[in-house]
Write a protein that binds this DNA or RNA. Structure first.
Length: 629
DNA sequence: ATAGGGTTAG
């Protein structure tokens, strides 16, 4: 009711006299609308040329017209083009909003507001609406609601400047923006990666004092910080807000922080959160257990991961598709495909429906184990169950084929994928290129990597490293080195693998000097040499006959806590054998067995060969003893 | 409303 009083006030402002004529026309229109049961008709259409803004204001604010008809009239104006005058503007919108507000038609209000805010034709719609609200003496509840809605619409449309403007206005006028709306802004800011703004706004929310901060808002901000690696800042923020009793963290909050610490392998942090949860008597959820499984599995402690899983059963925690997918994935990664498959069957029996992630994990496991037939069966099962094959599944299958040298099958899948309307991504092209490279089909590999650029897919470090690898394999180290340096100029950062690729190439070309230079360079850049770096260098030193240098590198590697793999031992044992140092060779062979590594033929050949060069017969004796075992 | 799961190069 009081909204109508205000309407007349707005209406009178800036209306040029005489308005009688306009008033009369408005009156006629209202009558036509009422008589036509509020549906615009031909008669109304004929009046269009006479309608101007003043007429519109009158019609929209007419108390005798029900809000539904006001809305109908508004839509009618939008679809008609007047040859003589503008028929509606921001002010008309605001009048309409006040009518819709009266009728509590909030959904219509919001959708029209959203159109206004995003419409290209209107200059500064948000500022315009705010100043209209400011100038006119509207019902306070209406202004508050419209501000809240405007704020939310701006947030939804990522118009952050405007949203802040509305918030400033509301704050100045003492109007309340709902917490839920603030949450929408926080969410949008986080999604856009605007974490500083997000955090800043959260602080404003806290400082406003008039808002009851919900735990969801806090958790969202903490998660945003954690995802940027700023767990410490997140912890400080949680301390600040919880110690003042502003908001109480729940299991989601703790899971967020726990997950962040797990992600950075921070044992102390993990323990701290678990302790806090216990202290605050926050009960662990399925997600908490899921994160703990991740924690133990990523530390390589699969036994403890299984224990957690069993513990969940004992505690009657309801399992879900996340826990099973994670367990399946970890079992696949640790090479236990049987267990992974059993878990898959088990979840189905328990009525937990596997989704694309679950299938993805198992298919990847099967592909990596070389069981392409089983993977194909699962792929078909997905289709019969109506689970959409996504690009990750296709990439996984393609990689499986490539790893087995079945590039044609991978290419066939690429075609199927494209006919399904899924365009290849950077993974697809990298997988195909490396598959071709493995088969020494370098021209096709290069062609694949060039095609991706034409298709608008930006190459990443992996693509460029593969390119470098191709040049290396072709024996064109100059071109490889050029691409490597050019990559840095382009702002792409070479990683450990990139360096390893070149180091390996130089080592194999017996240019150990350059290989060492690259190793120093990567260390300078803060990249940590890994088992591949050392293996390449050791191999390089061995083939140029500097076995002592190789041994030095080998010990340096162990000192850094890096364990050698089959290739490392093979290289060093071969190197020692060639020099006839069979005692040392056998010693390393034992070490290798102790570490659970399976030696391949090359190791045996080398060791047997070493005996011919060896002056020690003890070694021969040892070897015979071994064979008896 | 906020948290947890699957893919790539040596």
């Amino acid at each position: 009711m009081s909204a109508n009083k205000s309407l007349l006030k707005i209406f009178n402002k800036g209306v040029s006299l005489p308005s009688n004529k306009h008033e009369q026309l408005a009156h006629n229109i209202v009558n036509i609308l009422i008589n036509s049961r509020f549906a615009p008709n031909m008669e109304l259409q004929s009046l269009i040329p006479g309608i101007n803004l003043n007429v519109t204001y009158h019609v929209l604010s007419s108390p005798s017209l029900p809000p539904q008809s006001t809305l109908a009239f508004f839509h009618f104006l939008r679809t008609q083009h007047s040859p003589t005058a503008q028929t509606f503007d921001l002010k008309a919108h605001v009048i309409l909003f006040s009518r819709l507000f009266e009728a509590r038609k909030f959904a219509s209000m919001k959708s029209i507001l959203s159109n206004v805010v995003t419409e290209v034709g209107i200059h500064c719609p948000v500022k315009g609406i705010v100043s209209l609200l400011d100038e006119c003496d509207f019902n306070r509840h209406f202004v508050e609601k419209l501000c809240d809605m405007l704020f939310r619409v701006c947030s939804d449309n990522r118009l952050f400047e405007e949203a802040f403007g509305v918030y400033d206005y509301a704050e100045r006028k003492g109007l309340v923006i709902e917490e839920r709306s603030c949450f929408v802004l926080l969410l949008a800011l986080k999604k856009c990666g605007e974490m500083e703004l997000c955090l800043g706004f959260f602080r404003r929310m806290v400082e406003s004092g008039s808002l009851e901060i919900k735990v969801q808002s806090l958790t969202l901000v903490l998660d945003g910080l954690c995802r940027r690696g700023e767990v410490e800042r997140a912890m400080v923020l949680m301390d600040e807000t919880t110690s003042k009793g502003i908001v109480k963290p729940n299991v989601y909050t703790y899971n967020t922080l726990l997950n962040a610490y797990v992600g950075r392998k921070d044992q102390k942090g993990v323990n701290e959160i678990l302790k806090l949860m216990e202290k605050e008597k926050v009960v662990r959820s399925v997600a908490t257990y899921s994160i703990l499984i991740q924690w133990y599995a990523s530390c390589g402690d699969f036994g403890e991961a299984e224990n957690i899983f069993e513990d969940m059963r004992r505690r009657n925690i309801k399992m879900d598709v996340y826990v099973y997918s994670s367990m399946i994935s970890w079992n696949c990664r640790s090479g236990n495909i049987k267990r992974a498959s059993a878990l898959f069957d088990e979840m189905c029996q328990e009525g937990i429906v596997p989704n694309a992630h679950t299938y993805g994990a198992l298919i990847d496991g099967l592909c990596k184990a070389g069981q392409m037939n089983a993977a194909e069966i699962l792929l078909e099962e997905m289709q019969t169950k109506g689970i959409d094959l996504n690009i990750v599944i296709f990439n996984t299958m393609m990689d499986g084929y490539c790893k087995r040298g079945m590039v044609e099958e991978a290419l066939r899948l690429q075609v199927i994928m494209e006919t399904k309307g899924i365009e290849g991504d950077v993974f697809t092209y990298n997988i195909l290129a490396s598959g071709l490279c493995k088969l020494h089909r370098y021209e096709e590999a290069k062609w694949t990597l060039s095609t991706m650029v034409e298709k608008g897919v930006a190459p990443n470090v992996v693509s460029l490293t593969t390119f470098i690898e191709i040049y290396c394999k072709e024996g064109n180290l100059a071109q490889a080195e050029w691409l490597f340096r050019d990559m840095e100029k382009k702002g792409e950062v070479p990683n450990v693998v990139t360096y390893n690729t070149l180091i390996d190439a130089y080592s194999k070309k017996e240019n150990v000097k350059n290989a060492h230079i690259l190793k120093s360079e990567m260390v300078e850049k803060g990249l940590l040499p890994d088992v591949y770096t050392y293996t390449s260098l050791i191999h390089g030193e061995c083939i140029v006959g500097r076995v002592d240098e190789a041994m030095k590198l080998f010990n340096e590697m162990l000192l850094k806590g890096i364990t050698g793999n089959v290739a490392t031992y093979t290289s060093i044992i071969s190197g020692l054998s060639k020099e006839g140092r069979s005692d040392e060779g056998f010693k390393l062979y034992d070490e290798m067995i102790e570490k659970g590594l399976t030696p391949d033929d090359r190791v045996f050949t080398a060791l047997v060969g070493s005996l011919h060069n060896s002056s020690s017969n003890g070694a021969m004796q040892q070897s015979e003893n071994r064979e008896q075992k």
